[in-house]
Design a protein around this nucleic acid. Sequence first.
DNA 1: AAGTGGTCTAGACCACCGT
DNA 2: CGGTGGTCTAGACCACTTC
Lengths: 235, 235
Amino acid sequence: MLPKYKEISKEIENEIISGKYNDTNKLPTVDELIKIFNVSKNTIRSAVDLLVDKGLIYQVQGSGIFIRQISKEGYINISKMNGLTKDFGAKDIKNKIISFKTLIADQYIADNMKCKVGTELYYVKRIRIIDNEPFSIEESYFNKEIITYLNEQIITSSIYDYIINGLKLSIGFADKVIYCEKQEKDETNLIGMENEDISLIIENTVYLTNGLIFDFSKSKYNYKKTKLLSLANFK
Amino acid sequence: MLPKYKEISKEIENEIISGKYNDTNKLPTVDELIKIFNVSKNTIRSAVDLLVDKGLIYQVQGSGIFIRQISKEGYINISKMNGLTKDFGAKDIKNKIISFKTLIADQYIADNMKCKVGTELYYVKRIRIIDNEPFSIEESYFNKEIITYLNEQIITSSIYDYIINGLKLSIGFADKVIYCEKQEKDETNLIGMENEDISLIIENTVYLTNGLIFDFSKSKYNYKKTKLLSLANFK
DNA sequence: AAGTGGTCTAGACCACCGT
DNA sequence: CGGTGGTCTAGACCACTTC
């Protein structure tokens, strides 16, 4: 059972996506939303704040709540915590497994996952494929003390869907480091780059709400096909 | 005059930076903060929420407020709206002007700045230099209807400092697009890359709180020296 | 059971925008 | 000046963690 403000936020988000406000690009006023949803002002403000944080709307004091039109379909949104699924909408996303095994944390992984050397991990290496075109190579490490079970079926579909809905874990936050790096050509060939050896890299450290790291991953993207999007608010 | 919750947020942030909580990595409880600052619970929560959004802390229901230790000095934080100054702390940041002129918006700029073709703009091309090493090339367009005046002195020091404190404009939010692109070698040479022709690019579209775009910029970074950091929260 | 964060209300008053 | 968002309070009750 979600709290009211999250339900309301989700409902308004759906309305925005459905195009309900496309004529004016303006949402109802706060007072109107209070009446529509029959809740207090703070509850509306919490709901609206969520959408501001997501970059969907902005508020102008004395004027109203406006839709922040961003026509960036196909960009990977690194501010949100989607996976690729939401960034590419209707497109067909598949995963090809290159490697799937358990191993134990060495010093490098232990440092990055704030766990002990020797901690048992799942290691998953996949190629992400969008509309039958290889798009990225992803290597992930999952702490087995938290992600107690994985199988081929799960990692072929959506690992995060399984973690949230299957294991009922709640994901809190993530650090993402973005940079470029030279690669061996047999790596870049996997994502459709002939005679190219530079990749765009995203290193992702993902925490549960209680602060424990359960996933550390490194994704290599074909830099010719990849644009990242980050929406920032000044507060 | 800042509202209470922003003052409190700033004060707690300073305490965190000063290392006041380094022994426990834990902040006082919400009830304690209420007594310390003598304000209501919602005011403390607003203050704390700001720090959560900044990626400085995280809250665990039933347990406490914890510091999110991130040892990423020198990374460019694209979640915040700093400018380089805060990302590189004590380091010496200089700007070398390559070009400074007024021009009028063509179709491309008009599309990106949501202004009319023909709108007057300032165009600024600078090299950003950190500790005497060229670091990035930045080309910016400022809408002259909003940024009514610029001069060489301002763009040699900090344009944003001038916009906020001089012009008293209030910056609302920004879209950032990140990608890699091949460059002419005379461009990449400017940022210390010999025989390299790939740059890491950040395109930045910056809005005032009222939703108007005043700045559109494209920065090219030496990919060998650049790591970007993005802190995301799952809500 | 005690401690700690999360949600929600009802109402007051302030600050800014546009007419 | 009316409309609209921004801040703040005091208090109630819920949900989760820790012991």
